[in-house]
Design a protein around this nucleic acid. Structure first.
Lengths: 161, 161
DNA sequence: CGTCACAGGTTGATGTGTCATCGATCGGGA
DNA sequence: TCCCGATCGATGACACATCAACCTGTGACG
């Protein structure tokens, strides 16, 4: 309707943007410095380490992470180079390939996880009371619901003509 | 204290992570597709277009954006190549240089701004009631306060020994 | 007047994300 | 049996972010 935001809307939007930028940067920097890995590395390793045999198909990793397949592929190449994972083509269907966590990857995730949790706790969870945190979570959920609802419409609106 | 998060804490943290990832991706993708520019382009152009004469020193842009100077320099190089800005060394102090928005840059920002506002409105602001938005903003503010408070301590804690 | 520390700004190397495209394999229907 | 479409995954080109090193005016201090 309106073309611009009200002062209140703008204030709250900018607060969110500032918070998310700083929180993301803070966590990424410390993960890199102390844990010797990037946030994306961490994400992949968490999923792998929770999977049976520390092994998953690429397709399932895409599902878990919501990444694009090319991003995953590139990232796995780099992680393989660093010795955190290996790739194995599946015998039963040659199109698929398994991603397997290595011992080094396992060790890395085990040392990084508690640190990451501590950071989330320090910079985010402890900033709010339990009730506030619950409220915050619900509001995030509402935004997610909005995205769920709106995204398909946009996809359709963008393609025709 | 604890090494892991409670179920509630984890749920709310993951909601936040999902929301922020999807919202960021959604906005960036549409800015690129419809506005023909990236979010960083947009940020630079907004500041320039608001400055008198559409002109600012690099140093002041760094101040506004909170970017590293090398990031700004690289990005300005790309924007210059795309014709959105030009650079001019200042006559009075050769160390400084001015960044100036071009007519094309002005046109680009003027067409992109309402679109960006509409997206923020659609995917974020309208997902919440005004009261909820205000609450959300306050909670963000609390997290920011936490970051303000903790960051200097971390800097100190990270360096010694 | 030197010279020297420093700040503004650039550059190159490296790691990362996205897009478009491609090669290969499987599964189903003529 | 043979093709055909769909799917998995990889790749190359490019945009972006960070780090470290660098060049160069300026201004302060001897």
């Amino acid at each position: 309707m309106t073309e611009w935001l009200t002062d209140d809307e703008q204030r709250d939007w900018r607060r969110y943007v500032e918070m998310q930028g700083r929180l993301t940067a803070q966590i990424a920097a410390h993960m890199q410095a102390e844990g010797k890995m990037s946030v994306p590395d961490y994400e992949v390793l968490v999923h792998l380490s929770e999977a049976p045999d520390g092994r998953m198909r690429s397709t399932d990793l895409i599902e878990c992470t919501c990444w694009e397949k090319s991003r995953l592929s590139h990232h796995l190449t780099r992680m393989e180079k660093r010795g955190l994972i290996t790739r194995e083509t599946r015998a039963d269907d040659l199109r698929y390939s398994d991603v397997v966590i290595t011992a080094a990857g396992q060790a890395a995730i085990e040392s990084a996880a508690p640190m990451h949790v501590a950071h989330v706790r320090t910079w985010f969870i402890e900033a709010l009371t339990p009730a506030e945190l619950a409220t915050f979570g619900e509001l995030c959920e509402k935004v997610i619901a909005r995205l769920d609802e709106v995204t398909p419409l946009c996809e359709e609106a963008a393609s025709p003509v």
